[in-house]
Design a protein around this nucleic acid. Structure first.
Length: 459
RNA sequence: GGUGGCGUGCGAGAGCGGCCCAAUCGGACAGCCUGCAAAGCUGUAAAAUCCCCGGUUCAAAUCCGGGCGCCACCUCCA
């Protein structure tokens, strides 16, 4: 079983499944008020890899990830552009999923929208108010964090320290600076929903509890997200569930962030690139590979240079697929028990992955297999051991969400003729003509390689 | 102020007590292969303080203590 770092216990421990053979997993999704940026891409890739790996091991994974389609940013953006909140949310949700598709990130099994779960949230708040865990102020409903016994477990610091560090603007009606808004009372011109405790809209932390518990049930297996969601967001989600007397996620995992020149990529530092822009400029698989080559909890440096390095590494992998004429696998998930994979390679792969998702080591092992496959082909063993290894590499990469491209697609008639003429020229040792034809083919966008004395084309 | 983390070749980035004179990828150079290429393989240089100092140990990049430097979280943030 996969062993993952658990934020709550600060240990690496095996996933303990509520139902045998089934994994229930929740990731906080985007607030759709702007284009996704590279940091979103990384966390999404990390958890997609986890999900795919669990599936590859034969587990039935239910993955839920929400869309926050109402919040301050969306309202602000709508007001700026004279549009409705719904309109803004739809635009950026569309941009989000376009990017996800380019990245080969599997769609969640369910994509709950906050605005579709308001009644559940209202019901939760009524219960929390009734039991005294929440209280009402003139501008909404707040959670009384002092009523939550182990508040602060995810933050990993003592309560008084959290309070001391709280730099939130003072709010006279809040009982503690740590208390957070569950419901924001309606303001003129802003969207709102009716509720017994006054019209308004939900606070950010409220949606995820309601949606995750609704769709996955109490005590679901794994709640994931970026490190910066640990506190306050995840802490506050959990506080509401605990305050409601319910068992929340039993395992919490957090991924590291994207860094530029050693600094976290963020909007305020203006050092971010939108994911949409990145994917327009590079092979989306390269970004996945770059993320795979570092550990998911460590920061990863994303610059044009590191992307170019990953693209070069990918090229070598694609070359392998071309050499052995491998059929593409993916992007749908792979179940490894159904695939033919070199047993030794499979074992090292699974061992690395199960060890807190050691993708760098898993990839290093695959790279070794790539060399071995090529070497045995060089030795004239193209159809036996070499091919089996190459195929195994392709399967395991597919299990990580990377589909190799052989580039051996349709070659049009002109190119075929040229290739044939070139072979004739080469047979006569007319190198000048042959080289001119090679240049022509390259100009047409083909990669030209001589294989077994014949011109081999790919692109 | 508190909490967590990090510091490994030219770049990225593993390793977390012996198998490390430090994986893997990218880059450089050379050889083999090729008519020449491309692809590929092999090898070489690159970390002689694995930030520094001290300690534990038969054994430390890895553990402990102390420095120095950097980052993040404690506020919307993946």
């Amino acid at each position: 079983m996969l062993r993952l770092h658990d934020t709550m216990t600060n240990t690496v421990r095996p996933l303990a499944l509520r139902d045998e053979g089934k994994v229930s997993m929740y990731a906080c999704g985007p607030t759709v008020y702007d284009l996704p940026h590279i940091g979103h891409g990384r966390y999404v890739l990390v958890w997609d890899v986890v999900r795919r790996f669990l599936i590859s091991q034969g587990l039935a994974v239910t993955f839920v990830s929400n869309i926050t389609d109402i919040d301050d940013h969306i309202i602000e953006r709508a007001a700026e552009h004279g549009r409705t909140e719904q309109d803004v949310a739809q635009e950026f949700e569309h941009a989000w999923f376009s990017a996800m598709d380019l990245l080969s990130v599997l769609r969640p099994d369910a994509v709950p929208h906050a605005t579709a779960f308001i009644p559940g949230m209202v019901a939760l708040l009524e219960r929390l108010l009734a039991s005294g865990v929440a209280y009402q102020t003139s501008d909404g409903v707040y959670l009384d964090t002092s009523k939550i016994a182990d508040y602060g477990v995810l933050a990993g610091q003592p309560l008084d320290q959290l309070r001391a560090g709280a730099r939130i603007e003072t709010h006279p009606e809040k009982r503690s600076p740590l208390d957070f808004a569950l419901w924001k009372a309606a303001k003129a011109g802003e969207p709102s929903w009716d509720a017994p405790f006054g019209a308004g809209r939900p606070g950010w932390h409220t949606e995820c509890v309601v949606m995750s518990l609704d769709l996955l049930g109490e005590g679901f297996d794994l709640h994931v997200g970026g490190q910066d969601l640990k506190f306050p967001h995840h802490e506050n989600e959990r506080a509401q569930a605990v305050g409601d007397g319910r068992v929340f996620a039993t395992h919490w995992a957090h991924s590291g962030w994207v860094v530029v020149d050693g600094e976290k990529m963020s909007k305020s530092l203006k050092n971010f690139t939108s994911l949409t822009d990145l994917l327009a400029r590079c092979d989306a698989r390269a970004y996945r590979l770059l993320c795979l080559q570092s550990h998911y909890r460590a920061p990863v440096e994303v610059t044009p240079e590191t992307i170019a390095q990953a693209e070069a590494a990918l090229q070598r992998l694609d070359n392998l697929a071309r050499r052995f004429r491998l059929a593409p696998i993916g992007p749908q998930p792979v179940v490894l028990s159904d695939a033919e994979v070199d047993p030794e390679l499979l074992q090292t792969f699974v061992e690395a992955m199960e060890n807190d998702l050691d993708t760098p080591r898993a990839f290093a092992n695959l790279a070794l297999a790539v060399s071995a496959a090529n070497a045995s082909a060089d030795a004239g063993d193209e159809e036996a051991a070499g091919r089996g290894l190459a195929q195994s590499v392709a399967v395991l990469l597919a299990a990580l969400g990377i589909t190799l491209r052989s580039g051996l697609g349709e070659v049009d008639a002109t190119a075929q003729d040229l290739a044939r003429s070139r072979d004739e020229a080469r047979a006569r040792k007319d190198w000048a003509t042959a080289d001119r034809m090679r240049a022509e083919l390259e100009a047409l966008g083909y990669t030209v390689e001589d294989r077994n004395g014949e011109t081999s084309l790919s692109r």
